[in-house]
Design a protein around this nucleic acid. Structure first.
Lengths: 347, 347
DNA sequence: TGACTAAATGTTTACGAAAACATTTTATGA
DNA sequence: TCATAAAATGTTTTCGTAAACATTTAGTCA
């Protein structure tokens, strides 16, 4: 009992129990080829009785690829990325493909190592955040021939296909909106110590529009911590305590901005007359706040969904090989999922 | 170039390039056994040159187990679970073990299917949410012999080891705290249409304490949607609009409760004099709210960390087998990670 | 220098599933 | 009733790695 029970049953065991060959079991399990009803039933019963669970490692080894999608995320601390992951997960659910993932914490070295680790599973595809990757990472991916989807950003050269939106345009759009309301003196509040490259791109777009309009950013505060309402609240307090505070503050995301709203509510600072605010992401919780934040809504879930669809999709070539046809993959294709300015009450 | 370049190099290829046998390459790659400096260097150079990436599928097949931890989550829509996942991820990072995961959306059938899918990867262990699992799920797991860690809850019989806290005690604790403040007429607001079993256990504990004190729950509103501030805000409006509204509302979690706070702030309802509120989880964003919510802080991250540690930990037996020693695994061990009542300003 | 040991490297095999090919049954029709 | 095709089932081999065992080479000491 001790030794025999330990062994998880294989097709061979099921075959023995059903009095057929391993190959017949294989055929029954997959429903391929011809099998008689009698044998099919016998095999299925045996499998159920023994508690047979297929070993995907064997199948994957033989197929030279595993039904897995590798997902690289900057962090799980930010709701945005768990939403992307959720999009991937939802799309994959029921398809028999599982997500394997890892987190880089915004480190390029960690990304390099992680990509190598994940690729050693021979996944069907890999999803990467953003378009900036080290030379080594790109080389590893190219050598592996794995299909790639980059998400979040489209400002740059995709390795293969990017599903995202223009971060630069989002920053610019926000600036234009605020400028149209007459604000001239701006503040910027960020986080992550500037490691979030997408946030930097938004700031770049924002700054360009401000400069072109002849207005200016008078304060820029980038906190080292990850984003949170608390950090946003403290940073806002700090910025508004200055001798010449800005008329309007652009936050690198909604969490920080919501913290700003909380500060104003608590201190009796009027929004937008005393200070105007704008965020980024359009997270659902904003709906519940007493003041509707002006922000830019992004298709986070869609990015995950589209990327996953692309990777498991019908886009494999006729031979079932990794499709390396330059027209569809090598050439960086950018799929712009767009964004939408939400004109709230904060500016 | 087309055909040859497609093939990812194997140890055999590296061996040929270095003029040694495949086994020598294997030894060099793992740093085991005796190898001369000369050969070692030759092999490493060849591997680097060819861009060799080990195929874990082969190793895992041979080892009869893959360096993976399977994680089953009820949903990714709730911050709490992405935090658990984050705890798992953080613990696993750098250990060469990757998390594979799936989401049940609180469905037992989906859990059954998902567990089978995940186990087909022959993971080192599996993490399940809660202690309630279908008979079939338990059978599949038992037959597979995989190591199990259950998280979140300890009110029940663990399959093996549970890392969590008593949900019933948390509910009871909250009730006692509110009763001590003199409230007698309570309301309860929940979500997920009652599919969240942990929330039900908290309610159970809460209700028991209320009953014992001779007080009562006058309103109970369980919305079908997933939790969110917005849902909490609407539900609170609904409850307070009643003819005889409760003096105090217990929410199944912080998101809902924060929505309640927002409603009160917007409507000028005084907290706690007009209505008292209490939540559950102790999410970090509460810190930033204008009013400090009374809640119960839970060790979400720790649950993930401990579960992962347990599964990859040094608890394998001497032979490196799955440890089925009844004393350590079969007997349901419950690791109580505790919780802490946060005495805020809302009751 | 030769016997002998330790170090370095090589060969065979197993892991579980499934494609490719082979063989046995069963059904069909003259 | 027997050829013949179609259906059902079986056998061999492969995927990449690593344990187990085998062999060769280098090193030590009498």
């Amino acid at each position: 009992m001790v030794d025999k029970a330990e062994m998880r049953p294989t097709m061979e065991d099921v075959a023995a129990a059903a009095g057929v060959s391993q190959m017949t079991v294989s055929r029954v399990m997959r429903g391929t080829g011809q099998t008689s009803d009698k044998v099919r039933k016998r095999v299925q019963d045996a499998a159920r009785l023994l508690g047979y669970v297929p070993n995907r490692l064997a199948t994957a080894l033989r197929d030279e690829t595993a039904p897995l999608i590798a997902v690289v995320l900057p962090t799980l601390g930010n709701r945005v990325f768990s939403e992307v992951l959720n999009g991937v997960q939802t799309t994959l659910a029921g398809s028999g493909v599982q997500p394997v993932f890892g987190v880089t914490e915004y480190s390029a070295e960690r990304e390099e190592e992680l990509v190598r680790d994940l690729l050693s599973w021979r996944p069907r595809g890999i999803i990467l955040p953003g378009l900036e990757h080290s030379q080594a990472t790109r080389a590893t991916i190219r050598a592996s021939g794995v299909r790639v989807a980059e998400v979040m950003d489209i400002d740059g050269d995709p390795i293969s296909v990017a599903f995202g939106m223009s971060q630069i345009a989002a920053g610019r759009c926000t600036a234009q909106h605020m400028l149209s309301k007459g604000y001239r003196r701006f503040g910027y509040i960020g986080s992550q110590g500037g490691k979030d490259l997408r946030a930097l791109k938004r700031l770049e777009g924002f700054r360009a529009a401000i400069r072109e309009a002849g207005a200016q950013i008078v304060t820029q505060l980038i906190r080292p911590e990850p984003s949170s309402m608390t950090v946003g609240r403290r940073a806002t307090a700090e910025v508004l305590a200055q001798a010449h505070p800005p008329q309007a503050i652009y936050y690198s995301n909604d969490d920080l901005a919501a913290g700003g709203i909380m500060h104003c509510l608590s201190e009796g600072i009027a929004i937008p007359s005393d200070v105007a605010l704008a965020g980024f992401n359009g997270l659902p919780f904003l709906e519940a706040l007493p003041v509707r934040l002006t922000t830019v809504e992004t298709p986070r879930l869609q990015m995950g969904v589209q990327a996953a669809l692309h990777l498991i999709g019908q886009e494999t070539d006729q031979d079932g090989n990794q499709d390396r046809d330059p027209e569809r993959h090598s050439t960086g294709r950018r799929v712009d999922l767009g964004f939408q300015l939400i004109d709230g009450d904060t500016c």
